[in-house]
């Protein structure tokens, strides 16, 4: 009789710990948001109003910079996927021994600060160098995108590589080839659709990074959202909070849209790995 009596009690005790952690985490993430939101509503003394938001939306530079950053993020995702997916595929298929090296290289952007990267760019591609990217507006934009691709590389590569680990890309490639498809066709018709979820999660991270990015955009003198946010922050009080809330909402909305776009084409299937892992041991 004693066992049923103690078990629920013991369960309650063991559940309290995780719950405390969850509540603390929620508070940790939500309190600043709530505080910022509350502050953004208190532009007029004594009443809560959306005055700060009106002020933000009346500034055309807000729309311009935010659109600029959203487009830059999308371009970054496209360029990044076109670079990372074939690389990860090729390394896994043909040079598995090089994987640690490639992984190390893709992690470098986490170790090297963006400020170092952008100064390197300015030094290497200035208007008097052999590749004068910064000599023109378009060139600088290209440089910015390249920089963003580098910054998002660790996340993109990790996500895609993990996605590829979940499917047997070697056998799938061979199956495709035996049916007459060349490697490019296999990559786009077989491999890519099966790592779409992974590419998508890499895309979310890239998106979030690019939207808030300040250093590259500022030093390359690009009209991006990050520098605009910093500028507003230096000489206004309530608007930055409103901006932060708007950016927060729009970023989430954009990610939602990305997910919807990705879902549409994968909705009918569950990301199911091959039913049977190839038995390496029995390969004669």
């Amino acid at each position: 009789m004693s066992a049923p009596a103690t078990t629920p009690g013991g369960r309650r005790a063991s559940r309290a710990g995780p719950w405390i952690v969850v509540v603390l985490a929620i508070l940790y993430f939500l309190l600043p948001l709530v505080a910022t939101f509350e502050f953004s509503l208190s532009m007029l003394r004594g009443v809560w109003s959306f005055e700060a938001y009106k002020s933000v939306f009346s500034d055309t530079r807000f729309r311009e910079t935010f659109t600029f950053s959203v487009i830059a993020a999308l371009v970054t995702i496209i360029v990044g996927s076109l670079l990372i997916v074939p690389t990860a595929y090729w390394v896994r298929l043909k040079f598995p021994k090089l994987r640690p090296l490639v992984e190390f290289i893709t992690l470098l952007p986490l170790v090297i600060p963006p400020i170092v990267l952008v100064f390197g760019y300015l030094r290497l591609y200035n208007s008097s160098s052999f590749l004068p990217f910064t000599g023109s507006a378009n060139g600088t934009y290209v440089l910015l995108i390249f920089g963003y691709v580098v910054l998002s590389m660790p996340y993109m590569y990790r996500a895609v590589d993990t996605g590829m680990a979940a499917i047997d890309i070697r056998t799938l490639t061979e199956a495709g080839e035996s049916l007459g498809a060349n490697r490019i066709t296999v990559l786009f018709k077989v491999i890519l659709p099966n790592v779409r979820a992974a590419v998508l999660s890499g895309a979310f991270l890239s998106f979030a990074i690019v939207i808030g990015e300040f250093v590259l955009a500022s030093l390359l003198n690009q009209p991006a959202f990050g520098p605009y946010l910093a500028l507003v922050g230096t000489h206004k009080a309530y608007e930055p909070s409103a901006l932060a809330m708007i950016a927060f909402a729009v970023t989430w909305a954009c990610m939602g849209l990305l997910q919807l776009a990705g879902r549409k084409r994968t909705a009918r299937r569950v990301a199911a790995p091959l039913a049977v892992k190839p038995n390496q041991g029995s390969q004669a």
Binding site: L274, N279, S282
Partner: peptide
């Protein structure tokens, strides 16, 4: 000759059906 141009059919131990199709 590349595998894709040999016009052979292959069946694998692990089935290797394309999961997305």
């Amino acid at each position: 000759l590349a595998a894709s141009r040999r016009r052979i059919g292959m069946v694998f131990q692990a089935y290797a059906l394309f999961p997305n199709l």
